[in-house]
Design a protein around this nucleic acid. Structure first.
Lengths: 339, 339
DNA sequence: AATTTCAATGTAAGCGCTTACAAATATCAA
DNA sequence: TTGATATTTGTAAGCGCTTACATTGAAATT
């Protein structure tokens, strides 16, 4: 594995008997080259096994065609699914995907953003809105287009591609309340530095107050996005104050973890306690009882985010935000409260 | 969002009152620069908000520090988890991750490999071994180090970081057979262009023949890695030939999908039929019955794969393969056959 | 036939950085 | 003090590509 000597544009030009400019054009805008010149170049390329040097190309053309994405973690199905669609769309448009993960930590995210830019990203996907203003200034100063996904906010000068977490959570809470539940629990994701989790709490609180449920009958517990934390949270909920008849969860992982723990405590879902989720990941329809949850079109979101980003990079303009509409999937985990 | 004019190395040099070489050294090998020169450069960098141009750096230094990974899909938890660890390790070592996905299609994978290289990857992670020889030649010719993960093969001149799929599957099958099962079913992943899936089938077949189970009492069905396909496969298995008392699944997704379908058909797992999985993804311990499966240390694999790749790139040498040892996690889905 | 227009190609100037090598300065032993 | 050595800095030559601009020759227009 020694350092190989690779053919350059110049080698191709020599073999094809044309100038380097013509070779470059053959590769980048074949339409502007005569048909049989193109053929000669192509065959020289094949013969030499040429492929362009990435650094040189990036330097001369002032673009890398690499798009970065900083997501909290790839292990969570919701990001994995959206990211997959994002990558596919980028690929179809000749861009590659650079990935970094923040572990839901703001400081770390910031480092990752900078390192993706240093690593050549010339456009970037971020999750949610919560971050220091300085980061946005940094991106603007460098002329790097960005899209904020997994959330949506009207009247913002950022470009969002996502959904209204508050409204969706509120809608789910209203559905729960309309069934007659009066003692409500909620297991939310950690709201610190996470606007999506926070907005979902806000939405639920709104519904709670619209239905005149007293603060005493609403109990909120935050938990990390894993099954065990969710289980622990649900136990806390049962121990403190009046036992809820419905528990609204900040996402499906929390809902599944909570359900599992309730069952192991001998409680039935939804007969004793109803559970709702958020995201509609694949396993939500596999577990028992099947989970009533908010369906989020992650794949679509990933695809559209990619498209917006590509457009922004192409036109050097800001694109407008796009709102996706979640909807509730009714399955088995939500029912009327017990008498 | 107009095209911004960014400061260059030369600007920094001018402000700091030194040569561009000194600035470059300050950034890349601070030890070789006098302490107070370093300070002057640092402050010039801050003052101008300088950060190096990626293309120029890649061109001059002949390396991008980007590592590519082509995986079948990020949506599958097993790759998501390994990839996450892979990315973290790369980041700790100053490299960025370029991702592409093949959807388990060889042709497509080949395109993705080439496009990652064109996109600047100077090392690459691949899953399994099954691909045209030409691809390996291509990588060698370009001097791009690669690691094959999720599988392991002795006496190969590739660098593997993975586990012996055949041995692990065989071991699981032996455990099943020792319990007294004599009619065995298997739901495998699609083995076409997938050496891992194929090796797992081979391992099970070995055990089957070691226990003198006749071909008539072993029924194999391939399925895509999703719950529905697995469900359909299990139904086929029930319809054809003698009903198996144990079904060995090629991975956890298949096992979970099969379990779900069996339950909906009114069959009990493991009382009527035992089920085993492979991978030990997180939900495997959440579903009911909890899944008996082969635990694969995905995170460790991702981490080690990254380390090997970084070492190969650093030394321009081939590293040796590393074998990880899976082990069986006994939970509830495997039991003795009914009388 | 002369002029204009346009498509196809060539020329050559960078793009912003790294690094081999040279030069200058500081350090040390004798 | 002097020469030898080590440390720090500067000079300048690329790295391999893209693209503005110039050139050529053929087709279209008058």
């Amino acid at each position: 594995m020694s350092i190989p000597i690779l053919p350059t544009l110049e080698d191709v030009a020599r073999v094809a008997g044309v100038s380097t400019a013509t070779v470059s054009r053959s590769l980048n805008s074949p339409n502007s080259v005569a048909k049989n010149t193109l053929l000669r170049v192509k065959s020289a390329v094949d013969q030499l096994g040429y492929s362009p040097n990435f650094g040189a190309r990036a330097l001369a053309a002032k673009r890398t065609n690499a798009v970065g994405a900083v997501i909290p973690t790839m292990e969570n199905a919701i990001f994995a699914r959206g990211l997959q669609a994002f990558q596919e769309t980028l690929f179809e448009n000749g861009s590659t995907l650079l990935v970094a993960s923040s572990s839901y930590q703001r400081e770390r995210e910031e480092v990752q953003i900078r390192s993706l830019i240093a690593g050549g990203a010339d456009a970037i996907l971020l999750i949610g809105e919560d971050r220091r203003e300085g980061i946005y200034e940094f991106l603007k100063k460098r002329g790097i287009p960005y899209v904020l996904a997994w959330n949506f906010r009207q009247d913002s000068d950022h470009c969002f591609v996502g959904f209204d977490n508050r409204a969706a959570a509120r809608e789910m809470a209203i559905k729960v309340l309309k069934l007659g539940h009066t003692k409500i629990g909620m297991i939310a994701g950690l709201t610190l530095e996470n606007d999506r989790a926070r907005d979902r709490v806000t939405g639920v609180r709104e519904a709670i107050s619209e239905f005149n449920i007293s603060e005493r009958d609403f109990c909120l517990k935050e938990a990390q996005y894993d099954f065990t934390s969710a289980g622990d949270a649900v136990e806390t909920l049962l121990e403190n104050g009046p036992r809820p008849t419905a528990i609204i969860c900040g996402n499906d992982i929390l809902a599944i973890g909570a359900t599992k723990r309730l069952k192991s405590l001998g409680l039935c879902v939804p007969q004793d306690i109803s559970i709702t989720g958020f995201d509609d990941i694949e396993v939500s329809s596999i577990i028992e009882p099947e989970l009533t949850t908010v369906h989020i079109p992650h794949r679509e979101m990933g695809k559209i985010a990619a498209e917006q980003l590509l457009e922004m990079r192409r036109n050097q303009t800001m694109s407008s935000s796009i709102e996706l509409k979640p909807f509730i999937v009714e399955r088995q985990s939500l029912a009327k409260p017990p008498n």
